[in-house]
Amino acid sequence: MKKIVVGITGASGTIYGIRLLEALAQDPSVETHLVMSRWAKENLAVENTGYTEKEARELANVVYDDRDMGASIASGSFQHDGMVIVPASMKTVAGIATGLADNLIARAADVTLKERRPLLLVPRESPFNQIHLENMLKLSRMGVEIIPPIPAFYNNPQTIDDLIDHNTMKLLDHLHLSNDYSSRWQGLTAAKKANRQVEHHA
């Protein structure tokens, strides 16, 4: 069974973390370990995700308090197959880039780095300032995958859910988990055909 660690921080876009948890919960071969920051829990309600904190926690197999520095995922001896921080606040990105490890999300990311396991960040900020960009470049050079939730339009998204699903598909791909969570590029001919179908139904 694959073990995936998911950190949800206080950046806007909590639904991206929830959607990833939903997708992972559908895969019986995956065990999910979840940490939510205090502000992630606040955003869960503010951003009308449709989930309560209790419901979000129930999507994971194991849940930790973000202040629990004695948790299993705080140690490099805890073996897992990848960690995703989604969404990732710029404070969290900075903390990881400088090795601050001041909460469980940052500490789990720190040990993920030192053990050279996959670490994916979904930064949710706009515009980026120079500090943000330098921190992300530093982490990218360490092998961290920076996957901002930038929407694609070649697959003719019709709803916000379509945009979120596309980003979820990318995360699952980079975790090496087979999925058909969103439409994939099938070539120019297929794209033109899909466009004609959309126009026909419009």
Rank of each mutant, 00 (worst) to 15 (best):
G70F: 10
L44I: 00
E55M: 05
Q197H: 10
Y64T: 04
D65C: 07
A23M: 08
N155V: 00
H166I: 00
P127E: 10
K192A: 09
H80P: 04
G70I: 12
Y51K: 11
S77F: 03
W185K: 00
V122M: 13
I160R: 11
Y51R: 10
T98A: 05
I15Q: 07
E22I: 13
A11L: 14
S140Y: 14
K91G: 03
N167H: 10
L163C: 04
I18W: 12
G10R: 07
A60F: 13
V63A: 13
G70Y: 06
L172P: 01
V35D: 01
A23V: 03
L137I: 15
N155R: 10
M169Q: 05
A88L: 09
A194P: 06
D102S: 11
L24R: 14
D110C: 05
M1K: 12
Q26C: 14
H132V: 11
Q186D: 01
S126E: 04
H166S: 08
S77H: 09
M83Y: 13
L172W: 01
Q197D: 12
Q158E: 14
T159I: 02
V122N: 00
I73R: 04
S12F: 03
S183Q: 12
I85A: 12
P148A: 06
G95M: 00
L175G: 06
A202V: 05
L59G: 06
H176K: 08
R124W: 04
V46E: 08
G13F: 09
Q130W: 15
M169F: 00
A40K: 03
N195M: 11
D68I: 04
S75L: 01
T98N: 09
A191K: 11
L44M: 10
L188T: 04
T98M: 03
E42H: 12
D161L: 13
L34C: 03
M169Y: 02
M36S: 12
S182M: 03
I4A: 02
T32Q: 07
G187C: 13
I131Y: 10
F128E: 06
D65H: 07
H132I: 13
T112K: 05
T14C: 14
G13M: 13
S75F: 00
W185D: 01
N103G: 06
L121R: 15
Q186G: 01
A40I: 04
